[in-house]
């Protein structure tokens, strides 16, 4: 449809505009690596969710006759079994459940706290900002491992503690990123325009600041998830992770590493799942960064 504007120009009219988010999405869809990463992640996530239906074996059933057996299609142990004779395929998928859940929940917690905290500090500025950010610095200087071990000792091993511990650490960086972004957004004219229109501070933060800092936040989020998964694996590797018979990739890899020579499948399968997931998140993060901030290309 072509219409004459009141000022005399003509232009094609689409009634719906394309928002920056839609633009970014289109750019992301042009990025092959990011698409492959998204598809793989979707498959892994679906497998994790559907784990009980994908294999005839329960994750905690012990087959005494098949301890540490290699991959075997006759008995439907596609990844073999572990040192206790449990099916490794289904355990890898249950591990994926825990690892992905830890990754997503801890990141979600850090996102919620970090964005609110960072945006508030950055927007209010001045003394409140200094005070809030000094607290972040203080938290940063806490030795993280010590913190986690302390929690474990006091409360015992508990999967929710891991979320809390990881979230409590990850939000610090998120808060810093959001604050930095907020400081730059705050100086832009449209914020002053909102002040001039009489919009309340709280509204300015939620309506203008947060949507405009979300771009880098989403990128950082996709890079935080693998980091959290990795940290959880590390904790599990140290024996501080989830409790038997529940498992995570970190626990499986730790067990596999001990049997690396006699039963390499015990290491290879969970490790490949972990590696592929980490790769995918990183590719997706890269793709998102390019899509959300095309100026950097």
């Amino acid at each position: 449809m072509s219409l004459a504007l009141p000022d005399g120009s003509e232009q094609l009219l689409a009634i719906e505009g394309r928002s920056l988010w839609q633009d970014a999405w289109r750019r992301l869809l042009r990025n092959k690596a990011a698409i492959v990463a998204m598809i793989l992640l979707a498959i892994i996530a679906a497998m994790a969710v559907l784990a009980p239906w994908l294999s005839p074996h329960p994750y905690d059933e012990i087959y005494w006759e098949r301890i540490q057996a290699p991959p075997d299609f006759a008995n439907q142990h596609w990844f073999g079994t572990d040192g206790n004779g449990r099916d490794l395929f289904v355990r890898t998928l249950y591990g994926a459940r825990v690892s992905l859940m830890v990754g997503i929940l801890a990141t979600g917690v850090s996102l919620l706290i970090g964005v609110l905290y960072g945006a508030t500090a950055g927007f209010l500025g001045g003394r409140i900002d200094s005070l809030m950010m000094r607290f972040v610095d203080f938290m940063y200087s806490m030795p993280f491992m010590f913190f986690v071990i302390l929690l474990m000792v006091v409360f015992g091993r508990n999967i929710f503690l891991i979320f809390v511990a990881l979230g409590a650490v990850e939000w610090l960086t998120m808060a810093r990123i959001v604050r930095g972004q907020t400081l730059s957004v705050k100086r832009r004219d449209f914020i002053e325009a909102a002040h001039a229109a009489g919009v309340r501070k709280r509204k300015i933060i939620t309506r203008h600041i947060i949507p405009n800092v979300l771009g880098p936040v989403i990128v950082y989020m996709t890079l935080t998830i693998p980091q959290v998964i990795l940290t959880e694996s590390f904790l599990s590797f140290l024996g501080l992770g989830v409790q038997e018979p529940l498992t995570s990739w970190g626990v499986l890899i730790a067990e596999g590493a001990q049997q690396m020579e006699s039963a390499p499948w015990m290491l290879i399968f969970p490790a490949s799942f972990l590696a592929v997931t980490l790769f995918c998140f990183n590719f997706l993060g890269d793709g998102l960064r390019d899509a959300l901030d095309p100026k950097d290309r």
Binding site: S19, L20, D189, F190, A193, A194, A196, G198, R207, N212
Partner: peptide
């Protein structure tokens, strides 16, 4: 804040004065 309805401002940089995430 109430008085601001009578006092308005137009900025120099037309694009920067508009929130890019809003229609």
């Amino acid at each position: 804040r109430g008085l601001r309805r009578d006092l308005q401002i137009v900025f120099q940089d037309p694009l920067a004065a508009l929130d890019p995430r809003m229609t």
